[in-house]
């Protein structure tokens, strides 16, 4: 006997993501899901970004890692409200799912935040599959990785709304072809905005900050 089902397997996650989205909409909080492979410089990019945005913009950060609070400790120095999710107690998951986000956001006192950044677990595969109720997704690629990463991990670059090419201060010392890396991102996602930055020197930061501020102000309804 065949029983017809026709159901999305990740439906429970999508339902929770919609609940999260309604919650963030109610509080006028812009939510950014930041994803990359491990070691691309997400945390340093965030530390520098928060330094430029606060106190004018009220920022909270949810940091996902399998283990340790190292990233949260670094981010707390900026003065932002930070909470860490360790997924080892959930079986060492390689991504943050929607059900982990709402509790963390409430713990941060999300009600008066303008911007909530979720630093996802370093991984170019699984986080791309899981909607967490975010407004936008940013993928970070660094010049110490291969130029062909966008072609090897197309879903991640396809679902991203914006990309950062980080560590450009290292370009003089590497064989990395930044133009080729950007071309590969555009092959997967032709209209993807790409910001070439160095989190260390803050080169190229202005267009990235501008993009972020415009999106925050559109959501919060406040002026530039």
């Amino acid at each position: 006997m065949e029983i017809n089902i026709q159901k999305k397997v990740l439906e429970a996650n999508e339902t929770q993501a919609d609940i999260n989205r309604q919650f963030f909409k109610k509080h006028n909080t812009f939510v950014l899901n930041m994803m990359s492979s491990p070691g691309s410089g997400k945390t340093e990019t965030l530390c520098r970004t928060l330094g430029k945005l606060m106190p004018g913009i009220r920022v909270g950060v949810i940091v996902g890692d399998i283990c340790t609070t190292n990233d949260a400790d670094r981010l707390e120095v900026t003065g932002a409200r930070v909470t860490q999710i360790n997924t080892d107690k959930f079986g060492g998951d390689c991504h943050l799912a929607a059900n982990l986000i709402l509790d963390s956001a409430q713990r941060l006192g999300c009600g008066d935040l303008d911007l909530l950044i979720v630093e996802n677990i370093g991984n170019l595969v699984c986080p791309a599959e899981f909607d967490i109720g975010e407004d936008a997704r940013v993928v970070v690629l660094s010049v110490t990785e291969g130029e062909d990463k966008p072609l090897k991990y197309p879903l991640m670059f396809r679902v991203a709304d914006v990309a950062i090419l980080n560590k450009i201060d290292l370009l003089p010392y590497l064989d990395f072809d930044a133009g080729l890396a950007v071309d590969n991102m555009k092959k997967v996602h032709p209209r993807l905005p790409v910001f070439e930055i160095s989190a260390k020197t803050e080169e190229g930061f202005e267009p990235w900050l501008e993009w972020l501020k415009i999106n925050v102000f559109e959501k919060t309804g406040t002026g530039l």
């Binding site: 006997m1 065949e2 017809n4 089902i5 026709q6 999305k8 397997v9 990740l10 599959e129």
Partner: peptide
């Protein structure tokens, strides 16, 4: 991008 169950057979 589908990840769906369509049916099961008993």
């Amino acid at each position: 991008r589908e990840i769906e169950i369509t049916s099961l057979e008993l």
